[in-house]
């Protein structure tokens, strides 16, 4: 189904962005650009976003056969997803 493919596309973008935030927040903290409290809020938020989105992208098989088929046609295809 088309909506599943869009869903996986959206999840993959969100997952990549959350990883980027996981990396950016500590770098900013290290550079004294943000304080530790802000860094931890960013990291917790990024973690939540990662675990809500990444499974649809990396292991779509967990959500059924149709998600697995949709993921095979997604923008950022991950081969291990279907294995």
């Amino acid at each position: 189904m088309n909506w599943r493919r869009h869903w996986v596309n959206l999840a993959s973008i969100l997952a990549v962005l959350s990883l980027a935030l996981c990396l950016a927040a500590p770098i900013l903290c290290f550079a004294h650009a943000i304080d530790k409290r802000t860094y931890i809020i960013c990291l917790d938020f990024a973690t939540l976003a990662w675990f809500l989105s990444a499974p649809f992208w990396l292991t779509p098989g967990l959500f059924g056969k149709k998600f697995e088929e949709a993921a095979a046609k997604a923008w950022l295809r991950v081969k291990s997803a279907s294995n």
Binding site: L19, C29, F30, L43, L58
Partner: peptide, 22 residues
């Protein structure tokens, strides 16, 4: 599910070390 955790986990190690350095 554990394969989902790996990329995030690598970054958590890196993040933790960078953030406590100050």
């Amino acid at each position: 599910f554990s394969s989902v955790c790996s990329p995030w986990m690598v970054l958590i190690f890196l993040a933790g070390a960078l953030a406590v350095f100050p």
